[in-house]
Deep mutational scan, measured.
Amino acid sequence: KNAAKIVNEALNQGITLFVSDNKLKYKTNRDSIPSELLEEWKQHKQELIDFLTQLES
């Protein structure tokens, strides 16, 4: 999976991924984040940080 797909899947579940101080963060109104999503974010962390940083610049 690529970073764009992961970010879109998160958005579809009401979760916004973003970068703050070079760290991957998220915002959501959900009570909890599915563990498989958290695991996927960890596996692709640097790719996600790079992707989101490019989007914001």
Rank of each mutant, 00 (worst) to 15 (best):
K23L: 10
Y26S: 02
S32W: 10
Q46N: 11
S32L: 08
D21S: 06
L48F: 01
A4I: 07
I33M: 04
Q13N: 13
T28Y: 05
N29F: 11
I49K: 04
N29D: 14
E40M: 12
L24W: 01
E47I: 13
L24V: 05
S20F: 11
F51P: 00
N12H: 10
E9K: 08
K45F: 12
I49F: 06
Y26D: 01
E56F: 07
K5N: 12
L17F: 04
E39P: 03
N22G: 15
F51L: 05
T53F: 06
L52H: 01
I33Y: 03
L17Y: 00
N22A: 07
T16H: 14
I49N: 02
T16N: 06
K23T: 14
T53D: 05
E47Y: 06
D21L: 05
E40A: 08
D21T: 04
L38G: 03
S35P: 15
I33V: 13
K42F: 15
S35R: 12
K45T: 15
S57I: 12
E39C: 06
F51Y: 15
S57D: 12
K23D: 14
Y26A: 05
Q43N: 12
P34S: 06
I6T: 02
N2P: 12
E40K: 14
D50L: 11
T53G: 07
I15K: 00
L52R: 00
L55E: 11
A10W: 02
L55W: 12
I33R: 02
E56C: 08
E9T: 08
L37H: 03
V7K: 02
L24M: 03
S20H: 13
D31S: 08
I49Y: 05
N29Q: 11
K42A: 15
L11V: 07
S35A: 15
E39S: 09
K45E: 15
W41F: 09
S32I: 10
Q54C: 09
K42D: 15
K5D: 15
V19T: 05
V19P: 02
L48G: 00
Y26Q: 03
L24G: 00
I33G: 02
E36S: 12
E39M: 10
V7Y: 15
E39D: 14
G14C: 05
I33C: 03
K1R: 08
G14S: 05
H44N: 13
F51I: 03
S35H: 13
L11H: 09
G14P: 00
D21G: 12
H44G: 04
N2V: 13
Q13D: 04
N12Y: 09
L48H: 00
P34I: 03
N8G: 11
F51W: 09
E36L: 07
Q54V: 10
K5A: 15
Q13T: 04
A4T: 06
N8C: 13
L52K: 00
W41E: 00
R30T: 06
N8Q: 15
E39G: 06
I15Y: 09
A10D: 00
Q46V: 08
V19Q: 03
K5V: 15
D31M: 06
V7D: 01
S20Y: 11
A3V: 10
L24I: 07
V7R: 03
L38P: 03
S32T: 13
A3N: 02
V7A: 04
A10T: 03
E47P: 05
Y26T: 03
W41D: 00
Q43H: 11
E9Q: 07
K25W: 10
N22K: 08
L11W: 08
G14N: 05
A10I: 01
E56W: 06
K27Y: 09
Q46I: 07
L11T: 10
L11P: 00
F51A: 02
T28A: 06
D21M: 07
S57A: 13
F51K: 01
N22F: 07
D31R: 01
T16S: 07
W41A: 03
S32F: 13
V7W: 08
Q43Y: 11
K25H: 15
R30H: 10
A4R: 06
N8F: 15
L55A: 11
D21F: 05
A4E: 15
N29W: 08
N2R: 12
F51E: 02
E40H: 07
I6E: 00
L11D: 04
H44F: 12
Q13M: 14
K5E: 15
I6P: 00
L17Q: 00
K42R: 14
I49H: 03
F18Y: 15
S20R: 10
E39Q: 12
E39N: 08
N12A: 15
E56G: 14
K45C: 12
V7G: 01
E9H: 07
K25N: 09
Q13C: 08
A3E: 03
E9I: 05
Y26F: 09
N2W: 08
N8S: 13
I15L: 02
L24K: 00
K25T: 08
E9S: 06
Q46D: 14
I33A: 04
F18Q: 03
S20N: 08
E36M: 09
K23N: 10
L55N: 13
L55H: 14
K25G: 11
V19W: 04
N22H: 09
D50N: 11
D21Y: 05
A10P: 00
K23Q: 14
P34R: 04
L38V: 09
L24C: 02
L52Y: 02
L37A: 04
E39T: 08
D50F: 10
S32G: 08
A4G: 08
E47A: 13
A3D: 02
K1Q: 09
S20C: 10
V19K: 03
N12V: 13
Y26V: 05
D50W: 11
N8K: 14
P34A: 05
N2Q: 13
Y26I: 04
K27R: 12
G14A: 04
K25I: 07
A3K: 01
N22V: 03
D50P: 03
D31H: 09
A4S: 11
D21P: 01
Y26E: 01
K5W: 13
L52T: 00
R30E: 05
T28I: 03
T16K: 10
E56K: 06
N29A: 09
R30P: 02
S57Y: 08
K25R: 13
E39V: 08
L37K: 04
K1F: 14
L17V: 03
